[in-house]
Simulated assay, not measured.
Amino acid sequence: MYLAAESWPDLDAYFENESLALVPLGSTEQHGPHLPLATDHLIAEGFARAAADRTGFLRTPTINVGVSPHHRQFNGTMWVDAPVFRDYVESFTRNLAYHGIDRVIYVNAHGGNVEHLREVGRRLRDEEVLYAVEWMWNDSIPELVDDLFERNGPHGGPKETALIQHLRPELVHDDRLADARDGGFPEFEASEMNRHGARTFYDAIDNTDNGVLGDQTDATAEKGEQLFEAATDQLVQLCEWLDDQPFEDLLPKEHA
């Protein structure tokens, strides 16, 4: 069920009988020369829509702009400052609590949002408003991601390319995949980004001239479909697990 497509009287039965909502979040930021700036929020929205359709749980409108200042040097990237993002998401989520929702899954597809969504979830749980948890699609299926791609990357790489090839193929510049690989950082290793235990860079452009990492030529729509179906299964299982939990078990424990 998509909240914004319903009239308010038609939502009465949902809020009377259900207590879970899916909130998709992403970003509007550069994803190299081959992918749209909408990549992250299109992926988040796709997963939230599929899980909502399969489970019947409520899906909210998508939060399209996230914490992305580390991509600001590339044309069109949009971002909000981290404290603003946290306050906005918290207020947005409190709206749901007002209507009777007491558990929320942040269906997230942007790494820059993760720590801030965790902080918002802690705030709301500590105040016993509701229980909110962050879900990141690739973290739910790490073995499959590793199996499908020889040279993966955390941003604009083959896994995100494959998903957009599956979800919105008309937005992918397939003729630029080799340029994306050759102008980026195809042999990404997280350890190479650190110096003596310190993360010494702040912006994507410090490491990659065109904003992407990994080998985009390794992506196909078929691989994207595999990723999408497997991660959707995980999200559905998370929805069902969370729906089954007694609310009091989700709240902070008493002092030891």
Rank of each mutant, 00 (worst) to 15 (best):
A190L: 14
A132Q: 00
I101V: 15
G214C: 01
H71M: 15
L213A: 13
W79I: 03
E189I: 07
W241V: 06
H110D: 01
T217A: 08
V114T: 15
F247N: 11
R72V: 11
G224D: 13
S68C: 12
N17F: 05
E119R: 13
N108Y: 01
H255N: 09
D215T: 09
G46R: 12
G214M: 00
L117R: 02
G112F: 05
D126Y: 03
D174P: 04
R199K: 13
E170K: 11
F149C: 10
A162Y: 04
G26F: 07
R122K: 12
T217R: 09
S27T: 12
D206K: 00
R118F: 03
H116W: 08
F74D: 01
A44H: 08
L96Q: 00
W137T: 01
D87K: 11
A21N: 01
T208W: 10
G76T: 07
G153I: 05
T62M: 15
A204T: 10
D179V: 00
H34D: 05
G56D: 10
M78L: 15
T62W: 08
G156Q: 00
L148Q: 02
H34V: 05
D175M: 09
Q216P: 09
H34F: 10
L130V: 04
E90R: 13
E134C: 10
R49L: 11
W241C: 07
V89K: 01
R72E: 11
H99D: 08
G197S: 06
I164Y: 01
E189F: 05
T55L: 10
N194L: 13
D53W: 15
K159T: 10
Q73F: 05
D249Y: 11
F228N: 07
E222W: 08
L22P: 13
D175H: 14
E240W: 04
E225F: 04
R199M: 15
D12C: 05
T60G: 06
L167K: 04
D206N: 00
A256C: 02
R122H: 09
L22F: 08
R181T: 15
Y2K: 15
S7K: 12
L42I: 14
G156N: 00
D102L: 07
H196I: 09
R122F: 11
G121S: 02
T77V: 10
H173D: 14
A51K: 02
R59Q: 13
S19Y: 00
L148G: 01
P154D: 03
F92E: 01
L167C: 04
